[in-house]
Design a protein around this nucleic acid. Structure first.
Lengths: 241, 241
DNA sequence: GTGACTTTGTGCGCGTATTCACAAGGGTTA
DNA sequence: TAACCCTTGTGAATACGCGCACAAAGTCAC
């Protein structure tokens, strides 16, 4: 009898670095790809390449979960998939509600990546009467007035906010009051929430702006030439407008 | 004559930390909000609160751009907006093409946050003949066969990939070959590109998985009880088969 | 003009993340 | 069984990001 279970517990115990957690889903996806191709075993080098990271980083990340590799061989794909899934909590089902059924909300509702990873969309809600009742991806849109009922009745544990910016904080307050402690926010605002509630933000325009910054750098520095029109002049002049 | 221009150059020069760059768009948004409310001057404390960060961090971030504040007073909103915009490269127009006009592509095409920040969507492309020709947000969808022409003729500098996973790498190779060096990828795959090309990834399901991890932790550790079905059993037993 | 007050800009220490490089461990072959 | 090869897991060094706390620098009241 090897004391493997104890070994696992030792490490898996509290305290996986946040940076590692953020990469686990990437590894998981790469592993699923290997699984589909019938690969049974993979080395850290191969997996790292597939996931787009350094192999030492991959090994250190995995070491936080436990000692799941075999020296001289690598990692068994299926087993690793199971362990990462378990660590991320994907072995259980998560019930998701999407609030705001505009273009983005529809895209999210139809996104296949959810269902296949243990996320079940159990509610689509919107404030617009023209949309309420419409059927999207086999699910009827409900009125936002029913938000609290939907969350309670269907045990929603994750709220996805895809409303316009102006409505986001209000919706957020309501879902938090209804007991939700995990929020994925697509609205371009900084949500404020009480301690104990996790908010993650996905912001399309921010990503573009970061790209623009680097693109500009490639082209040769901010604004290319000179440093600037408006200048600090209006500190002196425009102030008395 | 204050030597302000030199001072600015000293700092703005190469080397703004990546973490800072990622926050500049957030500050910029907060500043625009203040501008809309007619606020002329803001302290680092106020702005930091609006942006959801620590005020010392905000000041340090801004100090990388130059010395744009006034001690005892704060920052002039309009001037700061201009400086951050310039640093991010938003004072010039960026031409964007969206490839893949499914639900997500449509959402992106209609996203107001682009136009208002200097990003102009100049092309919508898709491989599906049923979609080609359709008009979305005032723009006709073109066939992916015309990808290279569109990029060249309209000087596209940023490509947004919103295709299914399987098509993403192929599309990426083509846009890179056509001279694009900035890619925003929504497809759930790791794109490989040559040096000099920037890729940023937005992945909806990864964000959800990170939330699930934390949610699980709140509920009391991985899997709650025991540690697991499939287990490493076959490492011990199946080994001598 | 002077002193009190406010807010910026930053030096410094701390913790986290990344990477290198290698010893330890397991498989494999003769 | 023993020697060799391969890959993991990790110690140690380095780099990076964060936030405190304070001196410097400006404003404002009188």
């Amino acid at each position: 009898m090897t004391p493997r279970q104890n070994r696992n517990r030792d490490r898996a115990d509290r305290g996986i670095p946040e940076a590692t957690v953020a990469r686990l889903p990437v590894y998981l996806r790469a592993l699923h790809g290997l699984q589909d191709r019938g690969v049974a075993t993979v080395s850290s080098e191969e997996l790292a390449t597939a996931a787009g990271v350094n192999s030492a980083k991959l090994r250190k990340d995995l070491s936080h979960l436990g000692s799941y590799g075999t020296r001289g061989v690598g990692y068994e794909v299926e087993y690793l998939v199971y362990q990462i899934s378990r660590e991320l909590g994907l072995t259980q089902d998560w019930v998701v509600a999407i609030i705001g059924v505009g273009n983005l909300g529809r895209a999210l509702a139809g996104y296949g990546g959810f269902a296949s990873r243990g996320f079940r969309v159990a509610g689509l809600l919107d404030a617009d009467d023209a949309i309420v009742g419409e059927e999207i991806s086999g699910m009827a849109v409900e009125h936002i007035d029913r938000l609290e009922e939907v969350i309670a009745e269907r045990s929603v544990s994750i709220a996805v906010i895809a409303t316009p910016a102006g409505a986001a904080q209000g919706v957020c307050d309501r879902v938090v009051a209804a007991g939700v402690t995990s929020v994925l926010n697509f609205a371009p605002v900084v949500l404020s929430v009480p301690d104990g509630v996790d908010v993650r933000k996905v912001d399309l325009s921010i990503e573009l702006q970061i790209l623009a910054f680097h693109e500009q750098r490639k082209a040769g520095g901010p604004d290319g030439y000179g440093d600037g029109p408006p200048g600090p002049a209006h500190y002196v002049e425009a102030v008395d407008a």
